[in-house]
């Protein structure tokens, strides 16, 4: 069984996303530890990409700040090595296909296994293109995490049947970023997912408040929060780990 499942064993999972190297890698490490200490069950580490087409302005900004600060894929691997001295929750990478492709899929995924990465999320790799990386992910025991969107409709069953790690259910149309209201009929999507897989399902995109988290967690196995955490890094910079810890605690408390 994949290590990722352990994230779903403490009630509803709280999944925190951060862009590595925003504003620097030391702050990322401190923020990850603050999130884990305050109840985050799984951490999504974003490897910055120059042109993150699935991201809204908040995470786009984080990618830019990180790259301007000189972050590279190799430095992100070093960060994970350092984190794994004491961080035991599942860690997954969230990045774009070209970051993995250009590093060399075999080299990238063998390094993932070596440093202790459990899964990989690539928003620009739909079901039809999975073969690009799936065989190599299998070889190194890294779960390739699939996304399901409000527009997936007839594709939900097909994607769910082959899901690994957890299913990332995208709450709304559009890109990442905080939203006032989530209108998608997620309950009926989750129902189709449940009929097709036992893999846990977490909802992300647009969730920023404890109330939203509670609502989304009631429908699924957990919530994913990115932009709201990245926003704290944007505001507080190097001093963000404290506020991030408090924020994660309020979110995890809301979904317990």
């Amino acid at each position: 069984m994949s290590n990722i499942r352990s994230a779903f064993e403490n009630g509803k999972a709280f999944i925190a996303f951060l862009t590595c190297g925003d504003p620097d890698l030391q702050t990322t490490a401190a923020a990850v530890r603050a999130a884990v200490k305050n109840g985050a069950d799984l951490i999504e580490l974003g490897i910055p990409f120059s042109d993150p087409t699935a991201e809204g302005p908040t995470i786009q900004g984080a990618n830019l700040r990180a790259l301007n600060g000189g972050v590279t894929t190799d430095k992100v691997f070093d960060l994970v090595r350092e984190l794994r001295r004491d961080v035991t929750v599942p860690l997954v990478f969230m990045t774009y296909a070209n970051v993995v492709f250009s590093y060399g899929a075999d080299r990238f995924l063998s390094t993932c296994r070596e440093v202790g990465i459990d899964g990989l999320i690539l928003p620009d790799l739909p079901f039809e293109e999975k073969d690009e990386f799936q065989p190599v992910c299998r070889m190194y025991g890294v779960d390739l995490i699939s996304l399901i969107a409000p527009t997936s409709e007839n594709r939900i069953a097909m994607i769910a049947k082959e899901a690994e790690g957890f299913l990332y259910l995208v709450s709304s149309l559009g890109v990442t970023g905080a939203r006032n209201e989530i209108k998608t009929d997620l309950a009926s999507i989750v129902e189709v997912i449940r009929r097709n897989t036992a893999t846990p399902c977490a909802i992300g995109f647009g969730i920023s408040t404890p109330e939203q988290a509670k609502k989304m967690a009631a429908l699924s196995d957990g919530v994913i929060v990115g932009s709201a955490i990245v926003k704290l890094l944007e505001i507080h910079g190097k001093n963000a780990p404290g506020p991030i810890g408090e924020y994660v605690k309020s979110m995890k408390d809301a979904i317990r």
């Binding site: 293109e129 527009t151 149309l173």
Partner: peptide, 12 residues
Amino acid sequence: GGQYIPETLMNA
């Protein structure tokens, strides 16, 4: 070639 795009756009 191929179709390296978010799931949201696949049905479109």
